[in-house]
Design a protein around this nucleic acid. Structure first.
Length: 681
DNA sequence: CGTATTAACATTTTT
DNA sequence: TGTTAATACG
């Protein structure tokens, strides 16, 4: 059987440009793929095609924005390759995942060549902030006349600096002008931070990329790492940053074997130092690169495309490309002006239920919003009416204190030098605060084991826990200790009384940990579990449990950022007021406003058949401004009359708000409390 | 150490 | 406004 024949059959389902991208040879390839133009399909076909051409799956690197995206793509590759049963499934062998996850794997394999211990642990954003905070105090930086930036700001500056590859002074000038006078202090802080992470055998998110960059730059090690891969494919390229672009160039210096896919119109992560320049300048960086532009939408109806084309046409700098479709006509999108938030909620729910009646499952419908808290009222109301939903974005499972406590235990036994993990664990014991914890941990950090604890004299209040803690750490730190879920179980057992003493709702918290114990069984080992949870945290508890929950039909609530790459039959975008979109916080510079416009475009372009945009005139204010209970809003500037022409406009009737509006606040307050309570039951 | 009080202050999106 | 950091005190 000729591979080419097989490929031809499968290529039938693609349009001409997609096909060109799939069968393109070895030269650098940029696929500019508009929303809904079959980007995932094209990429999956290209991977399958490469494998059919004889590239071994384990020599393909597929970089995506989230592990879920990689998994989905590989599932499709597998189904494309199903005609070749002799091949083992590609999904288990292709290297897939985020830049950070890929960096972690490569550093575990090759890190020793640049003096990196393979047993490093990874600090998430919160851990980084904690360490910076410790050092800020140690260095006595807070003493100056002007207040030193808070830890979150320090972490922000550091990360932006690293990822944008910009000198500190320039970055401060551009993005943090109020911190300029602290440039020297910040430099000292970051220097110390870097040294301290090295001592503790700890890497933060940014280090993963920096160390991989360093590894690839090594004359001896670099070529060996490069030689692992024949093909590198990058999804969502518009959301990569300067450091990531440099990494790719180190992996594929000539650009041969490099494929990047993205849409400059959907670049929405500049706060993470992503730059749209990467995708716009790709042809300059790799002369001879082929560019394929996909403009046929397989997602949205012509009416919706007309609206979204009009919206994105307002962008200043972009790759001009109007999307078209051969789908038959459908409904025009609607723009609904509501009196207030209650009415908006009411209308959304009403529409959702109508459409479910029409046969659109809840899981095919989604409500999107700019900021996580914009869905608070809707969540309460959905809860009250018993409409199931999953929320993506915002507060996550792993940010809960008890979950962090337990993971700190695991991290500490994995890497005893991890001071932040150790501090968190020891501070759980009564009588131990930051100072005592530090005194107990300094020798541990120096020696890399818990030996010093045997002769340590903890405070009296902690004495009863002390031998148990030592025994637990010794047991779990043993190379071939208990199975992973048993480890979690042991920690949970030790932790339970401490949790009860410390938090309300401890039963519910411990049940969460039970779930973590179940989930632990799915990971290969402790280091993998810690890394994966840190680098690609489950977005909902459901996801942690590993259950796709296919049988329970639920509505999707999501921040716009978290909805990237998804599509829904019916879509509702709420709080489309100026101040939310664009966010008040991002109206400083033209570039920021442009990004907010792209964000709005990303939101609208998730819709396949039905789109409803809602705008409450009056709303109970965000935690801003003093005194006033509510403010009056204006429709987003991104929907001027010329664009609104593509929408059916209607105003919700005045009388539709609940008659008992004055008591709505009290009722809402009560349901919030109930909901918070139910979270733990 | 841990709690209580006061003072300042930012407020989005997330690997 | 609600949250967090710095400080005072038991």
């Amino acid at each position: 059987m000729l591979p080419a024949m097989v490929a031809d059959v499968k290529l039938d389902s693609l349009d001409e440009r997609q096909r060109a991208a799939v069968v393109h040879g070895d030269e650098p390839l940029l696929i500019v793929a508009g929303a809904g133009t079959g980007k995932t399909t094209t990429l999956a076909h290209r991977v399958a095609h490469l494998i059919e051409q004889g590239v071994r799956p384990e020599r393909i690197l597929l970089l995506t924005f989230a592990r879920r995206a990689a998994a989905e793509m590989l599932r499709r590759v597998d189904s494309l390759l199903r005609s070749r049963p002799s091949e083992r499934a590609a999904s288990g062998r292709v290297w897939g995942g985020t830049f950070h996850a890929m960096a972690t794997r490569l550093l575990r394999l090759h890190g020793e060549q640049i003096g990196l211990h393979p047993g490093f642990t990874i600090h998430d954003r919160g851990d980084s902030e904690d360490l910076l905070d410790v050092l800020r105090a140690e260095l006595d930086l807070a003493r100056g006349a002007r207040r030193f930036p808070r830890k979150a700001t320090c972490a922000d500056i550091y990360s932006r600096c690293v990822n944008s590859r910009e000198p500190l002074e320039e970055l401060l000038d551009r993005a943090f002008p109020w911190c300029k006078e602290h440039a020297d202090g910040l430099k000292l802080l970051f220097r110390t931070y870097t040294d301290r992470k090295a001592e503790q055998c700890v890497l933060d998110y940014d280090d993963l990329l920096l160390f991989l960059d360093g590894l690839l730059a090594e004359p001896a090690a670099g070529p060996r790492v490069r030689a692992r891969f024949d093909a590198v494919l990058v999804d969502e390229y518009q959301d990569t940053n300067a450091l990531q672009a440099d990494l790719l160039e180190r992996l594929r210096p000539s650009g041969r074997g490099l494929t990047v896919v993205g849409d400059d119109a959907q670049s929405i992560y500049s706060f993470r130092a992503a730059t749209v320049r990467n995708i716009l300048d790709f042809p300059l960086r790799y002369p001879g690169a082929r560019t394929v532009v996909l403009t046929q939408s397989f997602r949205s109806t012509p009416q919706l495309l007309d609206a979204t084309n009009k919206v994105i046409a307002q962008a200043r700098e972009r790759h001009p490309k109007d999307l078209w479709t051969s789908r038959p006509g459908g409904e025009r999108p609607e723009l609904v002006t509501c009196q207030d938030e209650e009415q908006q909620t009411e209308l959304v729910i009403q529409r959702i239920l109508e459409r479910r009646e029409q046969g659109i499952d809840l899981r095919r419908q989604a409500v999107l919003f700019r900021a996580s808290h914009h869905s608070a009222q809707l969540e309460i109301e959905l809860g009250r009416r018993g409409i199931p939903f999953h929320k993506y974005g915002g507060l996550r499972f792993l940010e809960a204190a008890h979950v962090r406590d337990l993971l700190a235990f695991l991290r500490l036994v994995e890497n005893p030098r991890d001071l932040i993990a150790g501090t968190r664990v020891l501070s759980l014991l009564p009588g131990i605060g930051p100072r005592t914890a530090r005194a107990l941990l300094d020798p541990v950090v120096a020696e890399g084991n818990f030996g010093s604890w045997r002769s340590a004299r903890p405070p009296a209040a902690a004495a009863s826990h002390w031998p148990t803690l030592i025994a637990l750490c010794d047991e779990l730190a043993t190379p071939h200790g208990p199975a992973l879920s048993a480890q979690v179980q042991r920690i949970r057992h030790f932790y339970a009384p401490l949790c009860e003493a410390r938090y309300d709702h401890s039963e519910a918290r411990l049940r969460d940990l039970d779930q973590l114990e179940q989930a632990a069984a799915a990971f290969a080992d402790r280091a993998t579990m810690l890394a994966e949870l840190t680098l690609d945290p489950p977005q909902t508890t459901q996801e942690l449990a590993g259950q796709p929950s296919l049988d329970d039909d639920h509505l999707v609530l999501s921040t716009i950022h978290s909805a990237k790459g998804l599509e829904f039959d019916a879509l509702y975008v709420i709080h489309v007021a100026d101040g939310n979109i664009p966010s008040d916080l991002a109206t400083g510079r033209a570039a920021e406003i442009d990004e907010e416009l792209r964000l709005f475009y990303v939101a609208l372009s998730r819709a396949r058949d039905h789109l409803t945009v809602l705008f409450p005139l009056r709303w109970y204010d965000r935690p801003v401004g003093m005194g006033s209970r509510h403010s009056y809003a204006q429709l987003t500037r991104f929907l001027p009359p010329s664009v609104r022409a593509a929408f059916d406009e209607r105003a919700a009737p005045h009388g539709a708000a609940p008659a008992d509006a004055p008591t709505a606040d009290a009722a809402a307050g009560a349901s919030i409390r109930k909901r918070l309570h139910d979270l733990w039951s």
